[in-house]
C-alpha cells in the first residue's frame, strides 16, 4: 500500500513547551491507524500539529508526497485532511444539517456532490437523519460524536483524523461507532484514530502507534501490539504471564 501520510522527525508543542520529540508516524492509504497512549502523552498535540492547529518546530509531514508542515489549517483541510476535534465541538444554535454542511465549507464542487455525501453520512448514521433539523446542542453524547464525525466526512477528506472517539460514551455506543467506522473504512476512507481505550483502538485499527511523553515508543500491526507484554501491562491492565 502507498504511504498516505508520513510524518518524520516531528517536534512541536505550544509556545516554549515542547510536547513532541522526533515523532515518526505513517498512515497507508485505505487503512485505519490508531495512536494510543496515556493521558498527556501528546496524542492530541500530534493531531493538532498534523492539522495545522499547533506549531511544529522541526521534521516533515508528507501527505500525498507534499510537505504540509507550516501550512495554515485551512490549506491542510483543502488538501484532504479532516480533523474531528476532541470533545466534538459542534456549533450550538445550528441544526444537525447545518453543522454537517459546515464540514463542506471549503469545497468548491457543486451542491449535487455535497448532497450525495450528506446522504452517505446520513445512511451511515441513521440517527442523525432523525434529528436533522434539531439544534445540535440537543443531541446525546453519542449522537454528537456521530455528528462530529459526519461533519469531518463532509469535507470529503482523504484522511479522517478522529480525536478521542469513545470519550464519555457508553460501551454500547462505542460499539456502534466502531461498526460505523469500519464501514466507512471499507468504503475506502483512511482513518487516523486517537484513542485512550486501547482495546477498542487496537480492535479497530490494523496498525498502531504508542506515544509516551511525546515519543513514539512502539509501533506495529495491531495484533502484534495486543500480544506485546509491555502494551498489555501498561495499557490493557493485564500482567504478563
Amino acid at each position: 500500500m502507498v504511504d498516505l501520510l508520513k510524518a518524520s522527525g516531528l517536534c512541536g508543542g505550544y509556545g516554549d513547551v515542547q510536547v513532541l520529540h522526533d515523532v515518526a508516524l505513517t498512515v497507508k492509504a485505505g487503512e485505519i491507524v490508531c495512536l494510543i497512549g496515556s493521558n498527556g502523552a501528546g496524542k492530541t498535540t500530534l493531531l493538532r500539529v498534523l492539522s495545522g492547529m499547533a506549531k511544529s518546530t522541526a521534521g516533515s509531514i508528507l501527505f500525498a508526497d507534499q510537505d504540509l508542515r507550516g501550512l495554515p489549517a485551512q490549506e491542510i483541510v483543502r488538501r484532504g485532511i479532516a480533523h474531528v476535534p476532541e470533545g466534538r465541538r459542534l456549533f450550538a444554535g445550528m441544526t444537525v444539517r447545518e453543522n454537517l454542511l459546515m464540514g463542506s465549507y471549503l469545497r468548491g464542487d457543486g451542491r449535487a456532490v455535497i448532497n450525495k455525501d450528506l446522504d452517505f453520512v446520513l445512511a451511515t448514521f441513521p440517527k442523525l437523519a432523525e434529528r436533522l433539523h434539531q439544534d445540535a446542542s440537543t443531541l446525546s453524547g453519542g449522537e454528537q460524536q456521530m455528528c462530529a464525525i459526519g461533519r469531518g466526512l463532509m469535507a470529503n477528506p482523504t484522511l479522517l483524523m478522529i480525536d478521542e472517539l469513545s470519550l464519555g460514551l457508553s460501551p454500547k455506543l462505542v460499539g456502534e461507532l466502531s461498526k460505523a467506522l469500519t464501514e466507512i473504512n471499507r468504503a475506502g476512507q483512511s482513518i487516523l484514530l486517537v484513542e485512550q481505550d486501547v482495546a477498542t483502538a487496537l480492535r479497530l485499527a490494523s496498525t498502531g502507534f504508542v506515544l509516551d511523553t511525546g515519543r513514539i515508543v512502539l509501533s506495529g500491526p495491531s495484533n502484534e501490539l495486543v500480544a506485546n507484554p509491555s502494551v498489555r501491562e501498561a495499557y490493557l491492565g493485564m500482567t504478563a504471564a
Binding site: 492539522s51 492547529m53 489549517a73 485551512q74 483541510v77 483543502r78 479532516a82 480533523h83 474531528v84 476535534p85 465541538r89 459542534l90 456549533f91 459546515m102 464540514g103 465549507y105 471549503l106 461533519r151 469535507a155
Partner: peptide, 8 residues
C-alpha cells in the same frame, strides 16, 4: 477552534 478545523 472548531471553525479553524473546518478550514474557516
Amino acid at each position: 477552534d472548531a471553525a479553524i478545523v473546518l478550514g474557516v
